[in-house]
Amino acid sequence: MFEARLLRSSILKKVLEAIKDLLTQATFDCDDNGIQLQAMDNSHVSLVSLTLRADGFDKYRCDRNISLGMNLSSMSKILKCAGDKDTVTMKAQDNADTVTFVFESPNQEKVSDYEMKLMNLDLEHLGIPETEYSCTIRLSSAEFARICRDLSQFGESIVISCTKEGVRFSASGDIGSANIALAQTASVDKEEEAVVIEMEEPVTLTFACQYLNYFTKATSLSPQVQLSMSADVPLVVEYRIPDIGHIRYYLAPKIDD
């Protein structure tokens, strides 16, 4: 028996928003520690890694490891039926071919359950090595979303260049070019608005705008985002989900042939 309950459905709704444009289907691997999801987009350019720890749920029970293969657009349709303040419970029997979502209103006066067919997904899993990155940049997630959106107007790629002085995002194309430079902040009133850079070596890498914009669908999950870069390896865009886990997106760079 698997059962996971969240007091607020909004977390799960936001998680779905953060992955559903990038992935059509994915397996939720559930064990004692919580729920893990790892999946590549259809073009195998990026990889999503989601962790929701058992201790972040209000109730969590997983008697046997279970993999729930889900169609994400169907799951998203179901989660849209939950009110933001509803409690959500995901349930599946061992070896089940369906998963059930139960939504309960705060006063318990409305209880809905939705049963969804599971899919047998034979997806490739990748081992992600522990990596020391040359640069890590922490900034407001809303600011990062804004930068990606603004620069997307200029071209298909964004160049991210990180030095000790700051981080620079650039794009160029038919209409011209754009550069946004962020300096490391000296002091801020709100911690989540700070730009914090840790740099061992300067790094400049080029990435596809389209994917960066997909990743920013996670903005509402966290006030801050962390970018980790090293030369010639995938960028990591990490959103920490308060009290329960994180979502990490890995994006392969564009490299000069």
């Binding site: 990889l47 990748l126 596809a208």
Partner: peptide
């Protein structure tokens, strides 16, 4: 000539 790399080449297949 800048080309988009695939992600699989950077990680090990399990």
């Amino acid at each position: 000539n800048i080309k988009q790399k695939g992600i699989t080449g950077f990680f090990t297949k399990l």
